[in-house]
Design a protein around this nucleic acid. Structure first.
Lengths: 83, 83
DNA sequence: TCTCATTTGTTCGTATGTATC
DNA sequence: AGATACATACGAACAAATGAG
C-alpha cells in the first residue's frame, strides 16, 4: 500500500484551470501543509479520488518531481523529499 | 500449482474488441462450459498462453470477480465460485 | 522454524490511439 | 492545428500470502 487517502483533493472539471495543474497545486499545498506524506497516495488511489486518469495523475506528479519536491521509486511509490 | 493449461483461450490482437474483454468473455464461456475450473490458470500461465501482460489478465479476471463468478486468494489462485 | 517456489497484489514507467477543447 | 485528457495495453520491480519440504 502507498500513502493514505487524501480527501483534501478536489478537482473541479468546470474550472478553467487544467486538471493536471489543479492536482499539482493541491498536492503541493497538501505536502507543504504536512497533510500529505511522507508517501503520496498511489496513482491508482488518486485516480479513484479525483476521477482523473493515470496519464493526468502522472503529469501532475511529474511537476512536483521536476520541482524537487517529491521523487518516485518504481514499484514502490512516490515520496516527499525531506532535506 | 494452479489450474491446468487452457488451450481454449485465443486472443486476436487484430480484433476490434479489446483484449481484456476478449479474455474475460472466453474465460467466462470456458467456466460455464465446465472446461475451466475449479482453479483458473495462474496469471503467469495466462500471460504465456495469451501473450498479454499481467495487468490485462488481472483486469479480465477482475471482471469475473465483480460478476461473482470467481474469487481470488492471494498465494493460492483464482477459483470458480460454486453456489 | 526456516527456506523456497508459486501466486496474487501493488506500484511506477512507457507507448499508442482516440476524443475533446 | 495543437494541447489536453481519456482508454487501453505493455513492461518492470517489489511486496505479501500460501504451502511444501
Amino acid at each position: 500500500m502507498a500513502g493514505q487517502t487524501v480527501d483534501v483533493i478536489r478537482i473541479d472539471p468546470e474550472s478553467a484551470a487544467h486538471p493536471y495543474l489543479q492536482l499539482a497545486d493541491q498536492l503541493r499545498a497538501g505536502i507543504k501543509a504536512g497533510e500529505i506524506g511522507p508517501v503520496l497516495p498511489s496513482i491508482m488511489q488518486l485516480t479513484e479520488e479525483t476521477g482523473l486518469v493515470t496519464g493526468t495523475i502522472r503529469r501532475a506528479i511529474g511537476i512536483l518531481v521536476d520541482e524537487g519536491l517529491v521523487y518516485t521509486v518504481p514499484g514502490r511509490g512516490t515520496f516527499v523529499r525531506r532535506d
